[in-house]
Design a protein around this nucleic acid. Structure first.
Lengths: 331, 331
DNA sequence: TTGTACGCGTTATCAA
DNA sequence: TTGATAACGCGTACAA
């Protein structure tokens, strides 16, 4: 068992409250007993119990971060930026993931609730507005990232991102543009897919549903998607991918079949991960400014925790980063 | 404030202990009151306070994972495998990182201690045996990953890994072999560096200290290292990198200067990240079986938590994965 | 079958 | 300046 205030009190022949005062720099205490108790506490290896402190205070300094998938580097960047933003506050961050599973996501929210966390940030939620109905809502604020159906959120404008990507391809002369989806019921997914449909429509390009295939947000999903696309009677000349890892998978699978990017087929990603600039070919992609997102999410959460409910969703316009994986159509 | 057992008791006109019994499936309670209380608790949105429960029980079901760097994909893999291994137990995982900083690492250990976590796993520790001296040691076991100076650890044999990598290069005819370090005082770092020196020595290759340069474990560190190496009067013909991300940085920087890998210079990484197989050229690298490491670390920690101190360090022999970034020397 | 009393570690309040 | 007491939410031994 850890050393408690009582143990120190007994050893020092004072009352527990005196120990508490000495340790918390309370004004009304003699300098003598103060240093004596402090030294003793140190020597006994005392570390205060935040558990007990939380119980009596009725509030916690723990902030939870729930991310959909640890293997998705976008969420890793989010995690990193959140930790960065919170390091200078009085709060501590604890991260867990729910592996793209609705049930696990809610279980995780419940875990945070059970532990009475001060608030949580969720990246890649699959249950969205459900958070509004949770009983924890009143005392454990929830901020979502990249979700548009929720009032407390920081989001990159997914529609605009997809729009910019597809427009870019169209300007390069492409008309047969495939979309490799993530295969999840996320807010980002539906926004991008809708935008894909809209832009094609605006440009009077007939929609071919066969060009919409499912990936899994990772390399292998991108590779499988390509094998589906290559079975088509008429190949696409460009592929818009849900994210950069998917794009890397796509490019690899194409290379295996001796299609070269961008000579034969153009590929656009989403996220702008660090690796994307250093991949061969360097990826054309839609940048999600993850650092800014994390900072804003933390900001918003801290305001909500402080009782300021007067926040508005923050929408960030993404930027298209043009590199070497896209080129004008040749044939 | 969240709903408490007392709130329910008041509403149901029973005592708090009856509510507690009803909610915990206690045998001695009438089926009638049981279901009544359970329904009421659900309707009132009751979620038990693990904080209070932890306090009274004297033990927690929280397991902390401290990783050195979220942007290092090796640790992300570790995090993932640990979560995987723990999902079927009664414990919950909470991850935080300490950004390659000794002070932050100890602060994080203290945070876990304050919250009375059941145990912690540390990846990439910079303080190693210090954990043996912490006052939390007796009730919060600590398992380290890839640390050889600590009795409770799961580690890949770093020396052997480096040995296999360098041997491979030597067999390909290389004798001027550079080493791009991580630049940290970690256990892995010193083991690999020692091994590098040893193997060269065994093969009677004179050690040129100028061939040992510092990276930072990431892409940019690898790139900077290359610019140092290229300033040398005599270039290396092969570069052994601390990890795969470093290798990717190295290959990129070389490409920028029109050196082609492996034609002009061979490059070996370490870790075998997912991306490494799909990079161009696919990386020759030392595989650290991260899934197995995470599983073993969790296993060991749970045994320690269970009071079984009869554990021995687990050492895993790594495998060299030969791909396309290494080739026989040409000139 | 249910209620009462106590303790977990801490802090705030009130009394000495 | 210090000590005693109560309270946070829960579980459990004991009493009813």
């Amino acid at each position: 068992m850890p050393v408690s205030i009582k143990d120190i009190a007994k050893e020092a022949n004072v009352s527990p409250s005196t120990v508490s005062r000495a340790l918390n720099g309370h004004p009304r205490i003699s300098a003598e007993t103060k240093t004596y108790v402090q030294d003793l506490a140190r020597d006994m290896g005392y570390v205060p119990s935040v558990v007990a402190r939380t119980l009596v205070a009725g509030r916690s300094t723990a902030i939870g971060v729930a991310i959909s998938d640890v293997l998705d580097l976008f969420y890793i960047g989010l995690m990193s930026s959140i930790e960065d933003a919170i390091i200078n506050t009085d709060y501590q961050v604890f991260v867990s993931s729910f592996y793209r599973d609705q049930v696990r996501e809610l279980a995780l929210a419940n875990t945070f609730h059970e532990r009475r966390f001060a608030g949580i940030i969720v990246g890649g939620s699959l249950v969205d507005e459900t958070y509004l109905t949770l009983p924890s809502r009143s005392f454990m604020p929830v901020v979502l990232v990249n979700c548009f159906t929720y009032p407390f959120s920081v989001a990159v404008n997914q529609s605009l991102g997809a729009y910019k990507a597809i427009e870019h391809l169209i300007k390069l002369g492409h008309r047969r543009i495939a979309y490799v989806a993530q295969g999840l019921n996320s807010s980002a997914e539906s926004q991008r897919l809708n935008s894909y449909r809209t832009v094609l429509n605006e440009h009077h390009i007939p929609l071919d549903e066969a060009l919409i295939v499912k990936g899994d947000g990772g390399i292998s999903g991108g590779m499988k998607a390509v094998s589906q696309l290559l079975d088509l009677p008429q190949l696409p000349t460009a592929i818009f991918c849900f994210n950069d890892m998917t794009a890397i998978g796509v490019i690899n699978a194409l290379r295996e079949k001796s299609y070269e990017v961008p000579r034969d087929i153009s590929v656009v990603g989403f996220d702008d991960l660090e690796i994307s600039a250093y991949y061969q070919p360097a990826l054309t992609t839609v940048r999600q400014p993850i650092y800014r997102i994390g900072k804003s999410a933390v900001n918003m959460l801290l305001r909500l925790i402080g009782g300021d409910n007067d926040v508005v969703p923050e929408i960030i316009d993404p930027e298209l980063v043009i590199r070497r994986s896209t080129a004008p159509i040749t044939n």
